[in-house]
Every structure is written in C-alpha cells, then in structure tokens.
C-alpha cells in the first residue's frame, strides 16, 4: 500500500540510497561505454561496447578473474567450515564463554590494512615469526619467502583472509544456533539420534538460512577483495594475486582510464551477481530437498 504518508517516511532513506548507491552505479555503467583519452585534458569518446570486447583479448583481465575465483573459493570454503566448527564449540556452555566469544571476534574488528601489514611481516623471510618457528621445529631448513612465489603468495592471502573473517561466519551461525528451539533437539535425542545424526539431520538443515546469509556475504566480500592484496603483495609476484577490484583500481586511479576501469568493474559485478545467485539457488534447492 503506497500511501502518501508511507512514501514520505521512506523518502529520506530512498534519497540517501539514490545518492550514494544508484547514482555512482549508473555513472560507472555510463563511463564503461566511453573511451578515455589523455591528451591536453581528459577527453571522452563514445565507444559503445568496445571496452567490453577489449576485455576478451586482455590476458590480464582473465588472469585477475581466475585469481579472484581461486581466492574466493578457497577462502570462503575454509571460512564456512571453520565458522560452523567454532560456532558449535562456542554454543556449548562453559566457564569463561563470554570472554572467549569476545576474544574470537577480535580479528574481525581489526582494520584489514593493519592486519594485512602484520601478516606480511609474519611471513617475511628474514624477520618473520613463521620462518623462525618452522626453522626451530626443524620443518624448514632455509627460510621461505612466502609472498615471493605465486602459489605460496595466494595461500598466504587465503590464510590472512580466513583468520580475519571466520569470526564473521561464526557470529552469524551462532545467532542461527541460538534460534533453534531446545525442544527440537530434545525430541531428536528422545528419538535416539546420535550426536552426528543430530548435527547432520537436524541442526544443519535448520541452520540453512544463516549459512546462506553468511555464504552470500562472504562470497561477495571475498570476490571484491582489494585491501588485502593491495597491502600484502601489490598483486605480485607476476600478477598472480591481482584481483578484479585491484585491476579496476589501477585503471581508474593510476592509468586514468575510467572507461576501461568501469568496464572491468561492471563486468566483474555482473559476474559476481551471477555467481552468488547461482550458489544461493543451488544451496536453496539442496536445503529444500533435505528438509
């Protein structure tokens, strides 16, 4: 019912959204249809879909897309599993639970840039704690430059991201757990289900909505990862940790190529939307089948 009163009450929020979300998004879409020339000023020339066809031949675009996909899949999968495990642990009653719960949230509270810098020092070959520890235990005979080789650099980024955002998944799952009525679990116990069966047949299906929320949020955030690779690797070595957002940023701010940067951003956003929609679709179907 769109009464005038309701519209009026909604207006401030709608206006705010229009100004800070809709306008910039539309502007980016518009810019993606232009060539940007740097010659005696910044000159825009109509390009139609040319910027999008340019991505097809751009090996760097495909490489960043692949990097982003690898990073998103690995980090989100690990975070979901660890998040659920931690949530189940912290859902049990034990002494000092409140303190532990707050401590576990700490990584999530830290600014990404700060913790990324700390991680890059931890993984440093000469001054890093990790190499020192592994060397003392005898696992490593010589220090490893974790951020200096393509595979280990990606693993380092995933580790840092998992460390930071697992608490977020845990928090949402914990809230979901608290929403499961005690009677349901009681009934399952009376029916003679083992702990494993209760988890698999009762708790997880009832958690599906929370899990989907966490999954969607994490997938979108991981796909848009910018600060972590920006601080830790700068996209290196050899461009193997450059993400789509980092590439769009380089085009915008460093090359002043707003047209191509916008095309990269628009295409990246569309792909991310498709990805999340399909993941949610599949997950919902699975959830529907099981309950």
């Amino acid at each position: 019912m769109w009464t005038r009163e309701r519209l009026l009450l909604l207006l401030p929020a709608l206006l705010l959204l229009a100004v800070v979300v809709a306008l910039p998004v539309l502007r980016v879409v518009q810019l993606s249809l232009y060539h940007v020339e740097l010659h005696q000023g910044i000159v825009l020339r109509w390009a139609g879909a040319a910027q999008f066809s340019r991505t097809w031949l751009d090996t760097r675009w495909w490489a960043t897309l692949l990097n982003t996909a690898v990073f998103t899949c690995c980090s989100v999968a690990l975070e979901m599993v660890l998040g659920v495990v931690f949530a189940l642990l912290l859902h049990r009653r034990f002494r000092g639970r409140g303190v532990v719960r707050s401590l576990v949230m700490l990584p999530w509270v830290l600014p990404t840039a700060v913790m990324a810098l700390a991680w890059s020092w931890i993984f440093n070959d000469s001054f890093g704690v990790l190499n020192d520890l592994l060397g003392r235990v005898g696992i490593l005979s010589a220090p490893v430059a974790w951020l200096g080789a393509p595979h280990t650099a990606m693993i380092t980024l995933v580790v840092a991201d998992v460390w930071k955002t697992t608490p977020f998944v845990m928090l949402i799952v914990l809230a979901g757990l608290q929403g499961i009525p005690e009677q349901v679990l009681e009934a399952a116990r009376v029916d003679g289900l083992t702990a494993g069966q209760r988890l698999w047949k009762v708790v997880l299906p009832l958690l599906t909505p929370s899990l989907l929320v966490a999954l969607a949020f994490r997938a979108i955030q991981a796909y848009g990862a910018f600060d972590l690779p920006y601080v830790m690797t700068g996209g290196g070595p050899g461009g193997t940790t450059e993400t789509v957002s980092l590439y769009a940023y380089h085009n915008y701010f460093r090359y002043l190529d707003f047209g191509y940067g916008s095309a990269v951003a628009v295409q990246g956003a569309v792909l991310a939307g498709l990805l999340v929609a399909s993941v949610l679709h599949v997950a919902r179907r699975l959830g529907a089948k099981r309950t």
Partner: peptide
C-alpha cells in the same frame, strides 16, 4: 609517458613473473 603507470605495470608484472619462475 601519459600512461607511464601502465607501462610500468606491464614491465613489473613480467619481470616479477620471470623472477618468481612463473615464466
């Protein structure tokens, strides 16, 4: 160059790829 940053990035990426053994 007006797009010096792009020229530099091209060089950085490929040098780094060779130095890290990826190319």
């Amino acid at each position: 160059l007006a797009r010096y940053a792009l020229a530099s990035d091209i060089l950085q990426r490929h040098l780094s790829a060779a130095l890290s053994g990826a190319d």
